[in-house]
Simulated assay, not measured.
Amino acid sequence: MSDTSKPVTYASPPCLAAEVDPTYFDPLATDPDQARDVARWRKSERARLRGLRDALSVAARQEVGRAISDHLRAVVKEKFNGARGKVLSCYWPIKGEPDLRGLMAEWHAVGVLIALPIVEVKAAPLVFRRWTPETQMVRGDWNIPVPPPEAEQVTPDITLAPMIGWTVECYRLGYGGGYFDRTLAALDPRPVSIGIALSDARIETIYPQPHDIPLDMVVTDAGLRAERTER
Rank of each mutant, 00 (worst) to 15 (best):
E19H: 04
V20K: 07
V20F: 09
V20R: 10
D21C: 05
D21T: 08
D21P: 06
P22T: 03
T23P: 04
T23M: 07
Y24V: 05
Y24K: 05
Y24F: 13
F25V: 08
F25C: 12
F25A: 08
D26W: 02
D26S: 05
D26Q: 03
P27K: 03
P27T: 07
P27R: 04
L28A: 13
L28I: 02
A29S: 13
A29R: 07
T30N: 08
T30P: 00
T30V: 13
T30R: 10
T30Y: 02
T30A: 08
D31W: 04
D31Y: 06
D31N: 14
P32I: 09
P32W: 07
P32T: 12
D33G: 15
A35Q: 11
A35C: 01
D37C: 00
D37Y: 01
D37G: 01
D37L: 02
V38E: 08
V38P: 02
V38S: 04
A39D: 15
A39P: 04
A39K: 12
R40K: 11
R40Y: 09
W41V: 01
W41L: 10
R42H: 14
R42F: 07
R42C: 04
K43E: 15
K43Q: 14
K43I: 01
K43V: 02
K43A: 13
S44L: 00
S44D: 10
S44A: 15
E45F: 00
E45T: 08
R46Q: 13
R46S: 12
R46T: 12
R46K: 13
R46C: 10
A47Y: 08
A47D: 15
A47W: 06
R48T: 14
R48S: 08
R48G: 01
R48E: 06
R48L: 07
R48H: 13
L49A: 00
L49N: 00
L49C: 00
R50V: 14
R50D: 15
R50A: 14
R50Y: 13
G51D: 15
G51F: 07
G51K: 11
L52T: 07
R53G: 14
R53C: 08
D54F: 06
A55W: 09
L56V: 10
L56I: 12
S57K: 06
S57C: 08
S57Y: 06
S57E: 06
V58Y: 04
A59E: 15
A59N: 11
A60T: 11
A60G: 01
R61Y: 06
R61K: 14
Q62E: 15
E63A: 12
V64N: 00
V64K: 02
V64C: 03
V64H: 00
V64Q: 10
V64W: 00
